[in-house]
């Protein structure tokens, strides 16, 4: 499990308008490029330093490539990060609150306790 890295993907894409569009239109290319070239950047640090060990599990990579917010929830990705980014990508294709309600409905089979989000 590398919940932290999934969260880091969602976080870094969400804060970059170009990456939001790129992930919306080309998810596989974006996820693979990001894992290759961005996953090991230390964010709160001056540039030029990097980690060496971060990579997705296969199921995490697939969930991100498939835009599968249900799988991300199951994996324990932080729900705020997933929701915020997915609203940015997909709300525009729907009527007011329609996307948010459908997003919740697709998670209806989860009961308490939800998957653990601790990293």
């Amino acid at each position: 499990m590398s919940k932290y890295l999934v969260d880091k993907f969602l976080y870094t894409v969400d804060r970059d308008p170009d990456l939001v569009e790129r992930y919306r239109t080309a998810p596989r290319e974006t996820v693979e490029w990001w894992e290759q070239s961005r996953a090991n950047e230390v964010l709160n640090c001056h540039s030029g330093e990097a980690s060496t060990w971060l990579r997705f599990t296969d199921s995490e990579r697939s969930a991100l490539i498939d835009h599968d917010h249900v799988a991300l929830f199951e994996l324990g990705a932080h729900p705020f990060l997933t929701l915020t980014l997915f609203i940015a990508m997909f709300e525009r294709d729907h009527g007011p609150l329609e996307y948010q309600k459908a997003y919740g409905a697709r998670l209806a089979h989860f009961s308490m306790p939800y998957p653990d989000i601790a990293t």
Binding site: F73, G104, A108
Partner: peptide, 10 residues
């Protein structure tokens, strides 16, 4: 409050 879960936006 629920965000990103099944009970959101009720």
């Amino acid at each position: 409050l629920e965000l990103g879960g099944p009970r959101q936006f009720g």
